[in-house]
């Protein structure tokens, strides 16, 4: 494994601001394919960091014992936003900037933009394919899923299937994606999968283990590794969810959402999944029901809600309604 610093700036306080890339090169000659894994763009999303740890640990062991297994090249960018990671916040605290809203061609020369651009350029230079790993935000808990913008689905869906991630959600384009790492790499022809899982500021080791196993499958299917390590089991296929197969429940009232459902369980249409209550008056404002029959794959975790807030998403069982 080779550790390289791709970004470094001296700080007024002393320790420089640094970003590293860990590289596992091909055993012989030109790499068959180069895959990159990125995590920590949002500093409160920890699952990706642990996933990178699992990956680096496993790849290092293979490199030490069976280096000939490496037909391709792997780059891991485990912590690309150190100021936010050290602060446990989504945004870079000193500037209040979201690093995943600064990707793509940007005329500005502020420090956050410099960092975003140099990370982006480095990934672009070193990758034939990339995986950008996110946890959810403070509010919603997510089943492990790969999110694909509709316009890239033809190319990305077969690749996403190779990861055996529980859910692959193909969703419509929105303006908010235009400045993200995933969208801009895909636009440049570097197929990039975006993983969303769990909730921020927490790590669920079992979920990460399962994602890690999926990544190992991907590395073999992509011809980066010659064979699957013995300890990696076969995995079930992903459920692909198309845009019209997602139904969501939103709060009609402002209050506290008290969940009565479990993420990853099946729910029936109109089944009660929670309540919104008014803690000041001691009244129940609404019973929240499942918007459809299917798999509950997003669930509100932060209870404070304003009317309109998303409470749950269900991947519907039935054919989409006309």
């Amino acid at each position: 494994m080779k550790t390289q610093t791709l970004f470094s700036r001296n700080s007024p306080l002393g320790a420089p601001l640094k970003i590293v890339r860990q590289t596992f090169s091909a055993h012989q000659g030109k790499p068959a394919r180069r895959l990159s894994f990125v995590s920590g763009l949002h500093g409160d999303e920890m699952e990706g960091l642990y996933l990178c740890h699992r990956l680096i640990q496993a790849l290092r062991q293979i490199k030490d014992t069976r280096p000939e297994e490496f037909l391709g090249e792997v780059h891991v960018y485990p912590a690309v936003n150190p100021p936010a990671l050290n602060n446990g916040s989504r945004l870079w605290p000193l500037y209040g900037t979201d690093m995943n809203r600064m990707m793509g061609p940007h005329p500005d020369k502020s420090l956050p933009v410099q960092l975003a651009q140099e990370v982006f350029d480095d990934i672009q230079e070193h990758s034939d394919m990339a995986v950008d790993i996110h946890a959810s935000n403070l509010h919603l808990k997510e089943l492990p899923q790969i999110r694909i913008i509709e316009e890239f689905s033809e190319e990305l869906l077969p690749l996403a299937r190779q990861t055996h991630t529980g859910i692959i959600w193909i969703h419509p384009m929105a303006g908010v994606f235009e400045s993200t790492l995933g969208y801009n790499l895909n636009k440049l022809g570097i197929p990039t999968l975006v993983i969303e899982t769990g909730i921020c500021l927490r790590i669920e080791p079992k979920t990460v283990d399962r994602l890690f196993q999926g990544i190992m499958h991907l590395l073999v299917k992509q011809g980066v590794l010659a064979s699957l390590p013995e300890e990696i089991p076969p995995l079930p296929d992903s459920r692909v969810v198309y845009p019209r197969e997602v139904s969501q429940a939103c709060a009609k009232h402002s209050g506290l959402f008290i969940s009565q459902a479990s993420l990853g369980h099946r729910v029936g249409e109109d089944e009660i999944i929670g309540q919104v209550v008014d803690p000041v008056e001691g009244v129940v404002l609404e019973q929240v029901t499942a918007p459809d029959t299917g798999l509950l794959f997003t669930l509100r975790e932060q209870p404070t809600v304003h009317a309109g807030a998303l409470l749950a998403r269900v991947a519907c069982d039935l054919e989409p309604r006309p």
Binding site: R101, M102, G104, D108, G175, V176, E178, S179, Y183, N184
Partner: peptide
């Protein structure tokens, strides 16, 4: 100047 987040 144009930038990808300008649309927001």
């Amino acid at each position: 100047a144009e930038n990808p987040a300008l649309v927001l």
